[in-house]
Simulated scan of single mutants.
Amino acid sequence: MGTLYYGSATEPIHLEERALAHLKVVIATKLRRQESFTLSWKHLEDEPGGRSTIWLHPSIPLRFTFDEPETPVLNQQWIEALMHSANSSGGIMLVDEVCDTSTD
């Protein structure tokens, strides 16, 4: 399980670790460009139902923590899908991993 600590919020945000590793790349890219945007996700099964959205801004402290010490192999297609949503007016909507289903 990965955890996102955002601003002065007392409750950490728990996300699946692989998803958080991919989000970290997209979020860091956007914030490095001084771009603000929203991040939305569906709550985990062990949390009350629903979804949440936060406003990400370069001036707000942000920390990612991971249970696994090794960085997973990243899926470039998933990063691109997340970046595409980050650049939309709706912000990042955490979607399931995108896999290449073509057969070469």
Rank of each mutant, 00 (worst) to 15 (best):
L31H: 10
S36M: 08
R51T: 02
E45V: 09
E68G: 02
Y5D: 09
R51N: 06
L4S: 03
H14R: 14
Y5F: 15
E16Y: 05
R63M: 12
E45Y: 08
E35A: 08
S8C: 04
L56C: 14
T53R: 08
R51F: 12
I13S: 07
V25Q: 07
G49A: 13
G7V: 02
R33K: 15
L15R: 10
T71G: 01
E70V: 14
K24C: 08
E11P: 00
R33A: 15
P48A: 13
V26P: 06
A28G: 02
P72K: 11
W41Y: 02
D46S: 11
A21Q: 09
L62G: 00
R32L: 11
T10P: 00
F66K: 11
E17R: 12
L39Q: 00
V73P: 01
L39N: 01
S52D: 14
L44S: 14
F64R: 13
Y6R: 06
D46E: 13
S36C: 11
E47I: 03
R63D: 10
V25P: 07
K30P: 02
L74R: 13
E70H: 12
H43E: 03
T38R: 07
E16A: 08
E68Q: 15
G7M: 04
H57T: 09
D67V: 12
F66G: 10
T71K: 13
I13K: 05
L39P: 01
G7N: 01
R18L: 15
A9H: 11
P58G: 05
T3N: 10
K30Y: 04
E11Y: 02
P61T: 03
L20K: 04
D67W: 05
I27C: 02
T10G: 10
P69C: 08
P69M: 12
E35K: 14
L20A: 01
S8K: 15
I13Y: 07
K24T: 06
I54P: 09
Y6H: 15
T10L: 09
T71S: 10
S52T: 06
R33G: 06
M1K: 13
F37R: 06
L62N: 00
I13L: 13
R32M: 10
L15V: 05
L62K: 06
G2F: 04
P69Q: 10
R32D: 15
I54G: 03
T3G: 06
Y6A: 05
T3H: 12
F64A: 10
